[in-house]
Design a protein around this nucleic acid. Structure first.
Lengths: 109, 109
DNA sequence: ATGGTATTTTTATGAATGTCGAAATAGCGG
DNA sequence: CCGCTATTTCGACATTCATAAAAATACCAT
């Protein structure tokens, strides 16, 4: 994980529609959700949704698998884990794990 | 923390220049860094930097404090913590804390 | 006040985004 | 093969973004 990749993934999540899509997929668990179901649930135009899904696939945040005519979308959990890891390690203090303060300049990497 | 705010903050970090700025500030610790130092270190035009800093302040990711002629910028750690918390809780499995699998659909909220 | 350094605002411009309807494609079921 | 459903591609459009030079502002030191 480097800054460029992280930025691209953060950017992908930095749009309400896409973030909702992604969140919905994550919460749907490993079974994923068909594009059509996503479309119904989020109420966005199919073409817009398709556009955003491509975006998310491109950046490795979700995967798609054909099942007959429908396309199943799934969150790519390792990607999110890596991204959170980047934010926590490269950028941030651990937080929520403990009350540890931010690491001082140059303490890592 | 809601989806709109999270998306705005993620978007703010979803640009290489801003992510570098932010990362630099986080790693500079609580003392922060002057705009000028950031500018020198990152080699971006002052006006561009100022633009991005405003962006980050707007979204609550950093704060600024005047000290004589120089403006000290600091990462707003709680904001990042909340954002990571959102990603972990609302969106994602915990990861890195344990090997726990993603929460199944509807397990939360 | 004057000069100097630090930072922002203004202004400009090219590029990318977000959105959607309409048309095109893909692939099953019969 | 045909029709049907699912999804994508193709314009089109308005909006926002990223960048930076130039001018303006802020504030200290003298």
């Amino acid at each position: 994980m480097n800054v460029e990749i992280a930025a691209r993934q953060l950017e992908a999540l930095g749009n309400v529609t896409r973030l909702e899509v992604y969140r919905t997929l994550v919460r749907s668990g490993p079974d994923g959700l068909a594009v059509g179901h996503l479309q119904q649930r989020l109420g966005v135009a199919a073409s817009t949704l398709s556009h955003h899904l491509k975006y998310l696939v491109d950046r490795g945040l979700i995967t798609q698998e054909r099942q007959a005519t429908t396309l199943i979308c799934r969150a790519e959990y390792p990607a999110m884990n890596a991204l959170i890891g980047f934010l926590a390690d490269e950028c941030c203090a651990d937080t929520r794990l403990a009350g540890a303060p931010a690491l001082p300049a140059g303490a890592r990497k």
